[in-house]
Structure formats: structure tokens, C-alpha cells
Amino acid sequence: MAIEVRIPTILRSYTGGAKSVEGSGATLGDLFADLEARHEGLRDRLVDDAGLRRFVNVYLNDEDVRFIGGLQTRLTDGDTVTVLPAVAGGRS
């Protein structure tokens, strides 16, 4: 099952510079585990013990996965997963 994963500039050091990579998995969590096998270190930039890291936004097609199941989000062949760095900050 092939899923296209779009990688932001900041994480392309883990993908040999590639803007997008392919992976497989029944859920988003499975996909990240699959990617880790070929792109070591990537998973750790996306998830921690509590789930998705707050520094990244992950989208399944046009939806933010935080609203549709997080790491348990179901994937199907032909889906596109997009990773963007969250843009946030503030004075405190």
C-alpha cells in the first residue's frame, strides 16, 4: 500500500533531501514506523511518548490528523500525508 508523504525542508536531512517519500501502513502510526526503517530519526521528530509532537502539523489529504484520530488515523492506498512545521510562538 503506497502512501505519499510530503516532507518539509527542515526534515529533509532525514530523507536525503527528498521532498516526498513513499511508505505504507494501515494507520498513521504504522506509516511512521515504516518510514523509520528507511529514514532513521524521522519518527522521533514527528512523535513522542504522548503522540504527535506539538511542533508539527500532520495532514491526511486535506485534514489535520489531530481532528480525525491522530496516530490511529486509518490510511488507504493513494492517500497523501503532508507534514508541515507548526508556526507558533509568543512572548512567554
Binding site: N57, Y59, D64, R66, A86, V87, A88, G89, S92
Partner: peptide, 16 residues
């Protein structure tokens, strides 16, 4: 998205 005097965050859908 935070509408806050001390924090900001781009709305994730708008950012996409």
C-alpha cells in the same frame, strides 16, 4: 488561532 496577547499559532488548515 490562539487569539492571545501572549501566544500565536497559525491555524493549521489555513497554513496547509
Amino acid at each position: 488561532a490562539e487569539r492571545s496577547p501572549t501566544f500565536y499559532r497559525f491555524d493549521s488548515m489555513e497554513q496547509l
